[in-house]
């Protein structure tokens, strides 16, 4: 997969500012994703996701924003009214 355009939005399994989890030597993929709790005062879960930005398709990775303030806004859907 590498740096190919993200096919779908995926949490990276870590919080921003932390190295990705090391692949276990056993070769067995530890599938138990660390249950990340989102709470005020806690680190934001990192993610990599496809995005539309000013006429272009691009990839957004939250940890690329380290060092900046970020306002992450979820909303129910395009073409809704509020």
């Amino acid at each position: 997969m590498g740096d190919a355009p993200a096919g779908c939005a995926r949490p990276t399994g870590t919080v921003v500012g932390e190295a990705p989890p090391e692949t276990t030597a056993k070769g067995t993929e530890s599938k138990e994703e660390k249950r990340m709790s989102v709470r005020a005062g806690g680190k934001a879960p990192d993610f990599k996701a496809p995005a539309y930005h000013k006429g272009q398709f691009t990839t957004v990775k939250l940890s690329d924003y380290l060092g900046k303030w970020v306002l992450l806004c979820f909303y129910p859907g395009d073409f809704t009214f509020v």
Binding site: V38, G41, C73
Partner: peptide, 26 residues
């Protein structure tokens, strides 16, 4: 992951997170 996904409606409800330069949700 951010706790805003409504499984029944299949949408992300309104959630806004202010994240500081260290990656901490303030």
């Amino acid at each position: 992951v951010y706790g805003v996904y409504d499984e029944n409606a299949g949408v992300d409800i309104r959630g806004r997170f202010l994240i500081d330069p260290d990656g901490v949700i303030q």
